[in-house]
Design a protein around this nucleic acid. Structure first.
Lengths: 159, 159
DNA sequence: CATCATTTAGTTGTGCGCAATTAAATTGTG
DNA sequence: CACAATTTAATTGCGCACAACTAAATGATG
């Protein structure tokens, strides 16, 4: 990928103008990729009637079974301000039910309905088509995720 | 869409169930990093009274001078549905003026006010602090950008 | 030149993402 | 036990992203 390690500039040596460009590019690249993913997912998930964040929430439930809102939020790094309306929409679509936990009345358990469980079958082929659309090899994807993980940790906003 | 020899990633060996796990979603890593950037930018730009998308728009104007809305949108891959209210907010903040072009009355020219031009000085140290916050080396950043660029191109949603 | 198509912004509506606040239940402590 | 602190969701408000639509100006065509 980058076989020859040429004179590698340190951040402290670069002029502001250069940093401005670099900064612009890296954040912009990130958002552009994120937005491109959004478009592909919108197409892939349109038939299922899910948005991408809704799909993420469904995946957590498919994988782990009934969970309180808090746990879903931890898995997705989302707070109740985002999740509450999202889960309400999933409930309105008949995919989940929300009911307060008997043992702890603060907590709201979210569980799949039959329709929500069955939707998993139709969602199974989605990841493969998405990954194929990236044009990246498995190794590249893993390397990318590793870098992004470190980046996110450094930026320190795990929420 | 991709007539040239498709460099098919080696995904065929992994079972669907494995792919469907949250941990294997590149997109999730990407969005997490993107949101983490948002948080850091929010802190860095708070003093300037700018959001990150507003900062991007200001950067385009700082770099290129007065531009029609359409051109700003092309630079940032944003449409009028996003830009119109954003530019209105910048105008309300006294940073830009918007006036219809005399030679083409359809087009709206956006130009910096004095306050908008002067804001650039206060924005200059932002990129360095952002890049430092990433914890990545310059070569890692360049490699990341390269991968993200290919990714975005493959996903094919440049706008 | 009259009409239709295209271009350019704006508007509306939906759905995040997040900060700040509120309300209720639970826990901890004197 | 009483009361303060904490936990858990929900709500409100703001801004962005995008689709779908509208309105106005311009360009193209017969």
């Amino acid at each position: 990928m980058t076989p020859p390690p040429p004179p590698v500039p340190d951040l402290t040596e670069l002029p502001d103008a250069e940093l401005l460009k670099l900064d612009h590019q890296v954040c912009f690249s990130l958002q552009a990729a994120s937005r491109a993913f959004g478009g592909v997912y919108r197409e892939a998930l349109g038939d299922l009637g899910l948005t991408y964040p809704q799909y993420l929430a469904m995946m957590v439930l498919w994988e782990h079974g009934p969970l309180p809102v808090k746990t879903i939020g931890e898995r997705l790094h989302l707070d109740s301000g985002t999740l509450s309306p999202l889960l309400k929409r999933l409930e309105a679509a008949g995919l989940v039910r929300r009911e307060r936990s008997p043992e702890d009345e603060r907590s709201v358990m979210v569980r799949l309905t039959d329709a929500g469980t069955e939707l998993r079958e139709r969602a199974l082929p989605v990841p493969r088509s998405i990954l194929r659309a990236t044009g990246l090899s498995v190794q590249e994807i893993l390397a990318l995720q590793e870098t992004l993980g470190r980046l996110t940790a450094s930026l320190g906003r795990v929420v």
